[in-house]
Design a protein around this nucleic acid. Structure first.
Lengths: 137, 137
DNA sequence: TGAAAATATCATATTATCATGATGAAGACA
DNA sequence: TGTCTTCATCATGATAATATGATATTTTCA
């Protein structure tokens, strides 16, 4: 459903949201805790900085924190930069244009499902996910 | 959502279901009509033969037809061989084991959505999709 | 001012997916 | 029997996603 990179991004943001309330979180720490390749994660979280999801501080005692309060940060903001979700590729059969008027074979039935998925990404916050975290990843 | 190959498979099966009621459908014809690379589609539909979704006949005047009536052929049967859907990768955060008991952060909210998706693939037939086909792809 | 710690970035390797081209094998029919 | 048509398969290439390793840059602090 999510690309590997998008999944990393989401897990990293959840980690920062959980552990970065009163300090900065370092890439090395995250990479170890989440079992994600360090430099790859570094690139990924940096992309989130550019997207305005995280803030980074360089130098000694640097690290990352959320740029937006967790209860106003939506999953789509974290995940969208790393693959088309919530947005494009709405059509199951891959047609460039597929709407109610120009519908593909699957359109009517698929739309109901796709809308649910899009809704999840659009309306679920990082804070909400954290609440469901019995055993954080 | 679907891999390119899985999407090809679904479009091909829809094509066979629509045009193959009283004749055999050839790969060359499908490839041209659906704008899919010929040899690649050939491999893909052959995989569907192995899966028991299509039947193939070789030699002159050969081709493909459905192995199962369209109203008993479910989307998951067509799509599953080409990527994990309906089945695995249920967990949004990619955990190998993620159930109600060992839940990841996203589990509770995501489950509601993922179940809908799985349900679509599991319970929608090729025949149902054909009915919705205003302008067949 | 210099060393250490941390992010930022570049170059490259690895892997999986998608695609192409050539050839083999089976069946129909003159 | 021979040839043509069609599916089946093999070998290879192209591209994108994922990952690694080395280096540059920024900041802190002794």
């Amino acid at each position: 459903m999510l690309s590997q990179t998008a999944e990393y991004a989401l897990r990293a943001v959840l980690y920062v949201a959980e552990h970065g309330t009163d300090r900065l979180v370092q890439v090395t720490e995250m990479a170890a805790a989440l079992r994600i390749p360090r430099n790859y994660l570094s690139k990924t979280v940096h992309a989130l900085v550019r997207e305005g999801v995280l803030l980074s501080t360089r130098g000694k005692s640097g690290g990352f924190r959320l740029a937006v309060p967790a209860d106003r940060l939506y999953v789509v903001q974290v995940v969208a930069p790393f693959g088309s979700l919530g947005e494009a590729r709405h059509c199951l059969l891959g047609r460039p244009h597929c709407s109610d008027r120009t519908a593909c074979a699957a359109h009517t039935k698929w739309k109901l499902v796709a809308d649910r998925v899009a809704e999840f990404f659009r309306e679920t916050t990082i804070a909400e996910l954290l609440q469901g975290a019995a055993v954080p990843a």
